[in-house]
Design a binder for these strands. Structure first.
Length: 115
DNA sequence: GGGCTGACCTACT
DNA sequence: CAGTAGGCCAGCC
């Protein structure tokens, strides 16, 4: 299903990713109570209006790689934004072991307000 | 309704 | 570890 509420849930999840961390598309889909819809998450981020102010750059694919072709405008921008937050790229790949966001209830409850 | 596309994922070579 | 194949699901002709 594709209700507006589902979209908002995904947006909220992305907003909950703390700076200096990354999450995978599948992970976002999972946390948004939408398992198996990783591609749909990607679609939403592509469609997301700037006024939502989503930290879309903190979302990468399961291999820890940016999902844009290397050398493209978007790729370069995303990488720069992440590096500014302290995320380190080694051979163009993020070490998910080190930087992947681990969901925790305290973060969810006491983290920065999503709206 | 049918067929193609994609900011994906997993498993298997 | 790199490359491939198949599966997946929502959107858009």
């Amino acid at each position: 299903m594709t209700s507006k509420r589902d979209q908002q849930t995904v947006y909220q999840t992305v907003k909950r990713i703390p700076p200096g961390c990354v999450a995978t598309y599948g992970q976002v889909a999972d946390l948004s109570n939408a398992p198996g819809r990783a591609r749909w998450v990607g679609y939403l981020l592509r469609q997301s209006p700037p006024e939502e102010k989503l930290p879309w750059h903190r979302v990468v694919n399961a291999k820890g790689r940016i999902s844009f072709p290397e050398g493209s405008e978007k790729h370069t921008m995303q990488r720069r934004l992440l590096e500014e937050e302290g995320v380190v790229f080694t051979q163009g790949v993020i070490d998910l072991k080190q930087f992947q966001w681990i969901f925790s209830l305290p973060d969810w409850l006491f983290g920065p307000p999503p709206e």
